[in-house]
Computed example of a mutant assay.
Amino acid sequence: MKPFFILALTCLIGAFQTAAAAGRDPYVAIYDDVLQANADRAVERCTDLQQRLGEPSAERRHDAFVALAQAWARVEASYILGGYDMDAMDYPLMVDYFHLGKEDVHATLARLIEGDAPPARALYKNSYKTIGALDDVLFSGPWSPRREALAEVIAATVCRNLTRIRDGYRAHRADYLEDPKKALSLLINAEIENLYKTRDWRIAQISGLTKQTLGKPEPHHQQYPYSEASWAAIGAIIATHRQLLAEDRQPNLATIAHRQQADAGLATIQAALRATEQAYRDTPPDHHFGTREMIPIFQGLLDMQKAFYRQLVGRLGVTAAIIDADGD
């Protein structure tokens, strides 16, 4: 009798939670459970890393950094704060200066590590105080008091900028909810932009899948080459797209698409997302960023991007920014 009662109670609770989720406003759920929650978590992970810098365990420092890279990837994958605060448009560049500029930041940081200038003065450029710079200072060579001192300054700056993002989301929740049409446009365009950057910047150019790098992988151009956290960050990005699009993560963008009779386009996107997730899971650790192994992930992200442009944005009444000629 007792096992039956427990089973019945579990089913009842599950049904209640499903009904409650079904009744939630998808815009509220997206903001609270994805945008704000991911921003909150990024600040927490940055604080965790700060606390690990003075510890002797290299493994704990590494784990904390990977967790921060994943947390930031989730925030960046759905970043819309710049739509409500012009200053916030630049916050992502202040957190992680990736795939921008021609300066050899690694060479500069190597000189700073060998130098003796006070860290706060030596790290005078924003590109020296990002998550990418942390990857370099923490993992490009033997740990030392000098590296620790530099890392403390860099981490403090990263945490401060992540806090700006967290607080910005807290401040603009009402603005977001006041205009669902604007919110939807920002969300869809953030999805499309991130799909492109993940496919092209984080995968194709690293794995030899662009016209310039065809068949010639360039692993040194990974987002986080020294910690090897790039692969984990890509996984976090894919997981964030799942948060926003999967049927079993509703209420989310899928809920909005269903309400606006955009089921066909949504189904195409979800199928491509599932294929991307499976390809990511199936990639052996020693073949991360291998040209052949990255083709299914590249293709899945490309299929998602194309489906957004060709099948979803029109049905949702959204004007999509044109990025990379819709992926062709």
Rank of each mutant, 00 (worst) to 15 (best):
K2G: 13
I6W: 15
L7E: 10
L7G: 15
T10L: 13
F16C: 09
A19P: 07
Y31R: 01
L49E: 06
E59N: 04
E59D: 10
D63R: 07
A67D: 07
E76V: 14
G82I: 14
Y91D: 09
L93A: 14
F98Q: 11
E103G: 13
E103H: 06
A110Q: 08
L112C: 09
I113T: 10
E114L: 12
G115C: 08
D116P: 03
P118K: 03
K129D: 06
K129A: 12
K129Y: 06
V137H: 02
V137C: 07
S140F: 08
L150G: 03
E152G: 12
R160C: 09
N161V: 15
R164P: 05
Y169R: 01
A171R: 03
D179Y: 01
I192N: 01
L195I: 11
D200G: 05
W201I: 08
I203G: 01
A204S: 10
I206M: 06
P219W: 04
Q222I: 13
E228I: 13
S230F: 09
W231Q: 04
H241V: 05
L244P: 02
P251Q: 05
P251H: 03
L253G: 01
L253P: 01
T255Q: 00
H258D: 03
Q260T: 00
Q260D: 02
Q270C: 07
A272F: 04
A275M: 11
E277T: 05
Y280G: 02
D282H: 03
D286P: 03
H287Q: 09
F289V: 10
M294I: 14
I297F: 06
D303F: 12
F308L: 15
D324Q: 04
D324E: 06
